[in-house]
Nucleic acid binder design. Structure first.
Lengths: 211, 211
DNA sequence: CCGTTCATTCTACGGCCGTTGACCGGCGCC
DNA sequence: GGCGCCGGTCAACGGCCGTAGAATGAACGG
């Protein structure tokens, strides 16, 4: 017990190496994406040999799977307004502490099928809870749009680092998005509910007259 | 009879081959992204040898540059409401006819620096015009959020093919996003924030030169 | 009709990558 | 204290990729 710092046991040593490899893998996958990340690079960043990475994780795909494990954070249920606010809060959290594992998934999802599946799976519970909370018949489209907004913002802030998005404070972003989220999560304010289908009114809202 | 169909001139032949290569390159780049697209695959899809692709385009990077050339479609100026509506219309167009070249850029932007630059450059004029039309001091953050929403929706619809987004009609998506766009493009409705546009007449001539 | 150009193909090189299997040396159990 | 397990390294293989350059044969200009 007290010797832990003096002489690490073999199991400890192994766990440490695995953790170091995983941490570097997450970092590099998030930075370069799946394809451009090489096992050799991960190994060298972790200070070990590439063979060891193979030995511990089996393959590059499995390494990615382990590195990209991300706990799907669930949304509490409630009214559509509450769920929209919860989604905003969740976004705020992700804008504050930048979870590397989910960035690795995001960075890789466009070029790696496994990452794409992982991305879908990670977003699914949120999507379902959003859908359930939204009282219109097009609830899943609305929920999908909310999800798309969240991911678009995160991607452009952290992966593409568009300056105005990267510089802004999370609070500022959230405050600006709140009306968006409310308008998507709740049916038009004039009318509380009802089987409003996708509107079939033939009149296009061609000219929006600003009062 | 006419020699046009019987025997194509050498220049014609070359132009045809180049076009075929470019078309296949766009398609495959859009489908697989930069890294996973190989010159050999493009060549074989176009029915030519890989060396020919090199000969005509110089390198994989240059081929990508040519395949990813996308005309930046400009937004007309106007009030913030009008510009928001124009952005919606532009989104609708992109949701309708799925321009392969810009999908190639989108698919590759997270793993290829050149594609990322190209993406930034393609979005910049829109971003500027949005920013100019929005009368608040956080205009460029608002404009960036609008841009992020557009790209998030396109990416999840065409690249990740999330079912609810892929199945929805462009009109449906646009109608749901309209309130979002308006709330981002215009300052909070309760307070005009230092007098919005002292002159009630919008910039009289639809000036072709914004500056 | 001949020499040249040029579209196109073929072959090959060098490099990087994922993955493998042999090998080594110290920890840990009996 | 000896021996086996195991963390860890090393060298190598096969494959794919971008790219270069020579070779070929048909179109073209004079």
């Amino acid at each position: 017990m007290t010797e832990s710092s003096a002489r690490p046991t073999r199991a400890q040593q192994r766990r440490r190496s695995e953790e170091r490899i995983l941490a570097e893998a997450r970092r590099i996958f998030a930075e370069l994406g799946y394809d451009r990340t090489t096992i050799r690079a991960v190994a060298s960043a972790a200070g070990v040999d590439a063979g060891l990475v193979m030995h511990y994780f089996g393959s590059k795909d499995l390494l990615f799977a382990r590195a990209a494990e991300v706990p799907a954070d669930e949304l509490p249920g409630g009214t559509s307004e509450e769920v929209a606010e919860a989604l905003l809060t969740s976004l705020g959290r992700r804008l504050n502490d930048e979870p590397t594992a989910s960035l690795a998934v995001l960075r890789s999802m466009l070029t790696n099928a496994d990452a794409a599946d992982r991305f879908r799976a990670a977003g699914e519970p949120q999507l379902n809870q959003l859908t359930e909370a939204i009282p219109t018949s097009d609830a899943n489209l609305r929920a999908s749009l909310l999800s798309a907004i969240v991911h678009g913002v995160i991607a452009e802030r952290y992966l593409l680092r568009l300056t105005h998005l990267a510089d802004a404070s999370p609070e500022q972003i959230i405050d600006l998005l709140r009306p968006c989220f409310q308008s998507l999560a709740t049916p038009p304010p004039t009318e509380p509910a009802g089987g409003q289908q996708a509107d079939d009114s033939p009149t296009p809202p061609a000219s929006v007259k600003p009062r």
